[in-house]
Computed example of a mutant assay.
Amino acid sequence: MSTKENPLSTTPHDDHDSPQPSPRHALTVLGAGVMGVGITVLALGHGLPVHLVDVDRERLDRAADLIDGELRLAELMGALPAGTPLGTLVTGTSAKAVAGATAVVEAVTENAEVKAAVLAEVSGLVRPGTLLITNTSSIPVDELAGALERPEELVGTHFMNPPYLIGTAEVVRGARTGEPAMAAVAELLTALRRRAVVVRDAPGFVTSRVLHPMINDAARVVQEGTATAADVDALMQGCLGHPTGPLRTADLIGIDNLVDSLTVLHERTGDDGCRPAELLLQLVREGRLGRKSGRGFYDYA
Rank of each mutant, 00 (worst) to 15 (best):
V172P: 03
I255Q: 13
D233A: 01
D233N: 05
T207Q: 08
Q237T: 05
I215C: 14
P213R: 13
H158D: 12
T168V: 07
A181L: 06
G156D: 05
V259A: 14
D201I: 02
D260F: 12
L247E: 00
A186K: 02
I255G: 13
L265V: 04
A227C: 05
D233T: 09
A169L: 00
G174A: 13
G204N: 06
V232Q: 03
H266P: 02
G270V: 01
A202N: 08
D251Q: 12
V259S: 14
T228C: 07
V232G: 10
D271I: 06
L240Y: 07
G270K: 02
I215F: 11
G204H: 11
N161C: 08
T228E: 09
Q237E: 00
L247G: 07
A175N: 11
R195Y: 13
A191N: 00
V221F: 12
V264E: 00
F159R: 02
A191H: 05
A186G: 15
L247N: 06
P243R: 05
G241D: 05
H242I: 08
V198D: 11
V185I: 15
A196N: 04
T228M: 13
L265C: 07
P276D: 08
R275L: 12
D251C: 10
P203F: 03
S208G: 11
S261L: 15
D231Q: 10
P162Q: 12
H212P: 03
V264M: 00
F205W: 05
M214E: 05
L262A: 13
P213V: 15
C274I: 14
I166E: 10
V185R: 04
I253C: 10
G178L: 03
A184Q: 13
A277N: 09
A250P: 12
T177L: 05
L154I: 07
E170L: 10
T249A: 06
G241M: 04
T207L: 10
F205Q: 11
L235P: 03
F205C: 07
G245R: 12
N257I: 15
Q223P: 15
P180C: 09
T207P: 13
D272S: 14
M214N: 04
E152H: 02
E187Y: 00
L258T: 09
V171S: 08
R209A: 15
V259Y: 11
R268N: 09
Q223N: 10
V210E: 00
A227N: 01
R193M: 14
N161G: 04
L279W: 10
R150V: 04
G270R: 00
G174N: 03
E170R: 11
A277C: 09
P203W: 09
P162R: 08
L165M: 08
R150G: 08
T157M: 01
D217C: 14
V206I: 12
A202D: 14
V264P: 07
P246D: 12
E152Y: 01
A229Y: 06
V171I: 11
A277Q: 03
A227I: 07
P151I: 08
V172C: 14
L252A: 08
A181F: 01
T226A: 13
A191W: 00
L265D: 05
G238V: 01
I255V: 15
E170S: 10
Q237F: 00
A183E: 15
L258E: 14
C239P: 01
A175I: 06
C239H: 09
L211Q: 00
N257W: 14
D233I: 14
I215N: 12
D271L: 15
E267C: 15
V210P: 04
G225N: 12
T269S: 10
G245C: 07
P276Q: 14
R248S: 03
